[in-house]
Computed example of a mutant assay.
Amino acid sequence: MARIGFLGTGEIAGAMVRGLAGQGHRILVSERNADHAAMLARTIPEVTIAANPQVVAGSDVVIACLMAATARQVLPDLPWRSDHTIISVMVDVPHGDLATLCAPATDIALTIPMPFISSGGCPLPVFPDAASVTALFGARNLVLPVASEVALNAHFAASALSAPILRLLAEGTGWLARETGDPVAAEAYVTALFAGYMTPDGTGRHFAGLLDSLATEGGLNAALRAALEDLGAPAALGAGMDTLRPRLGLPPATGAAS
């Protein structure tokens, strides 16, 4: 089993720690966000709190979960070794910058975990080499190697769909709860309704195909979709994703969203 260190102990780091618990690893977490670190150490037996230099010195795999500005400040002063494996979950810190900040370490992978990695079933796009991510998380999560850092950054943009789509689901659930007077049942219904749609068919057109199947003229789905399209909601979502391009180093949009 591995000696794993976490630099940064926010929500994502905590979720990854919980996803690794019970597998025999030795896990060091940094003192940053002391309350969260203390909670992890209190509830997960294999977790120990240490200062950043001790986290790096005592680990074979280091998972970097810092904000970009903080990473640029603290990473160069840590005791990196050439045999370190680094997994970065940080937006705004490119692979080339990490190679400089963490020299002489060269085994560096970038990935994008979501909070539910704690229980498995999380898609993990990875660049440039998925071996380290697969070794630690592949048994319970879908590891998706991507061909370039630009492709990975596009996945960062897609991961940001979570908040606006959850906002729409929360709005719809709230509407149903107000009509029925039962918020618990409303949440159970909407959750199960959309869980039933979430098995891709391998065509690359799963959601488009579902839209086609729900396009019966005069049907409720078609009517509500038309109302939202008249309000500009789908186009606004695509335009909003395009606003992330400069930050993520993505090329300008070349065509309208379908």
Rank of each mutant, 00 (worst) to 15 (best):
M198E: 10
R42C: 06
A68N: 03
A64C: 15
I4P: 00
L244E: 10
P128H: 06
A235R: 13
A215Q: 08
A103I: 07
I27A: 05
T191Y: 03
R3W: 09
S59F: 02
P76R: 08
I86P: 08
C122P: 00
P115H: 11
A215T: 08
E187D: 12
A69D: 12
R178G: 07
E179S: 10
L75D: 03
N33A: 08
P125I: 09
T70V: 15
C122T: 01
V17N: 01
E31D: 15
S159H: 07
D97R: 00
D35Q: 12
M241I: 15
P200M: 11
A163P: 05
L214P: 00
L210G: 09
F207C: 08
L101Y: 05
V29R: 04
A34H: 07
R205F: 10
P94N: 01
A236L: 05
G238E: 05
G209A: 08
D60M: 03
L248Q: 12
A105C: 08
S118N: 10
E229K: 08
L101A: 04
A223K: 09
D77M: 11
G202V: 10
G196C: 11
Y197P: 02
M16L: 15
E149T: 14
C65Y: 13
M67Q: 15
A163G: 15
Y189M: 14
L75I: 15
P45F: 00
I112Q: 06
P113W: 14
L40Q: 01
A50M: 05
D107Y: 02
G5Q: 01
G5M: 03
S88W: 00
P252K: 11
G8M: 12
V150C: 11
W175P: 00
I4C: 02
D129L: 12
N153W: 12
V146A: 01
V184K: 11
A170G: 13
R42D: 06
I87W: 00
T134I: 09
P200W: 15
A103Y: 13
L237H: 06
F6V: 02
T100I: 13
D35I: 12
P251M: 11
V146Q: 03
L152N: 00
L248Y: 15
L78C: 04
G238Y: 12
R167L: 08
A15H: 05
T254S: 14
M241N: 01
W175I: 04
V62Q: 01
V93L: 05
I117G: 09
P251Y: 12
A170K: 06
N153Q: 15
D242H: 14
L66S: 10
T216R: 08
M39H: 13
E229A: 11
R225E: 02
A34N: 00
I87A: 03
E179D: 06
F137D: 00
G96F: 02
T43K: 10
T216A: 12
V184P: 04
T100W: 11
A177C: 06
P53I: 07
L7S: 03
I44P: 01
V55H: 05
T43R: 10
A151L: 14
G138M: 09
P76S: 10
A233C: 12
L248E: 07
L250M: 11
M198P: 07
P113C: 10
L193D: 08
S162Y: 15
S159E: 13
P246C: 10
A64P: 07
A71W: 15
I63H: 00
I4E: 05
L176Y: 03
I87N: 01
G10M: 06
G181H: 05
N33E: 09
